[in-house]
Amino acid sequence: MIQSFADYVVYNLFGLDESSRFGVALNFFLYDSIKIILLLFFISLVMGIINAYFPIEKLRNYLSSHKLYGLDYFLAALFGGITPFCSCSSVPLFIGFVRGGIPLGVTLTFLIASPLVSEIAVAMFLGTFGLKVTLIYIISGTLLSMIGGFILGKMRLEKYLSNWVKEAQIQSNLQSEEWKAEKTPFLKRLPTIARESWGIVKGVLIYIVIGIGIGATMHGYVPENFFERFLSAENWWGVPLAVLLAVPMYANAAGIVPIVEVFVAKGIPLGTAIAFMMSIIGLSIPEATMLKKVMTWRLIGIFFGVVSLLIILSGYLFNFFFTS
């Protein structure tokens, strides 16, 4: 349906030739943009509905009042993915968890998963790479957050939190406020949720369009197997190099995925590409500066180091499974 719409607009409305390079590129661009925007809206809507019924306060109260023997890591990763992420929310969330008496490891799991598995990342992956790669990304992102949080939790890093956070930790449990369920019926809440989903789409629209635009252009002009020479699966340093390049980069997930898709089409191994995207999406300098308010540099360094190492490991793992 979207395809026929794109065909109609490009070939009939604009009157471009179906065999012209520009026509094909424009068609691809239009088709991909519409598909991804619809996907993003729909996924945000689903996540918004889940969020309306299980807000983050509820999860916090649940985690702090139950002993879960490891399941808490899973829940933290899961909810990290569902909760809409904004890097400026990470600090209040962090403090909220710490105050609730939730272990540091579980809190960090949430902090890793939140940007890594987001509605934007899922929609972009689904739209550009298809279902299989998306599932691999979601599952490995969730596992990585759980393992990362678990390892960091075992390292006894509480002493590297900022002083005022330590104080907050001591006062924990004192103010476990009661969570009030909203009584508004579902149908009345739906318009608000839909409006917020549209807000998410609107916020990243420009990045989606630019990313797909660059991707569509590159497809036509970068020679086949162009990147293979530099970053093939046989080069052991391919994955760490990709991660090293990506951590300081701060690109919107929306913009980077369509571009990386071209890299994969032109010969970069999928594992290297996934590792690259995970580091871009999951770790960034702006996030580090936000975290500085609650952590010492040392803890931020350990946090980024452990997560980077895990991303490198999963990159190798994917390359191993997808090339053999």
Binding site: I56, E57, R60, C86, C88, S89, V91, P92, L93, I95, G96, F97, R99, W164, A168, Q175, E177, K293
Partner: peptide, 13 residues
């Protein structure tokens, strides 16, 4: 100011 914000015990801004 984040310290001021956290006095209100909120988790989402």
């Amino acid at each position: 100011d984040i310290m001021e914000i956290m006095k209100y015990n909120i988790m989402a801004t």
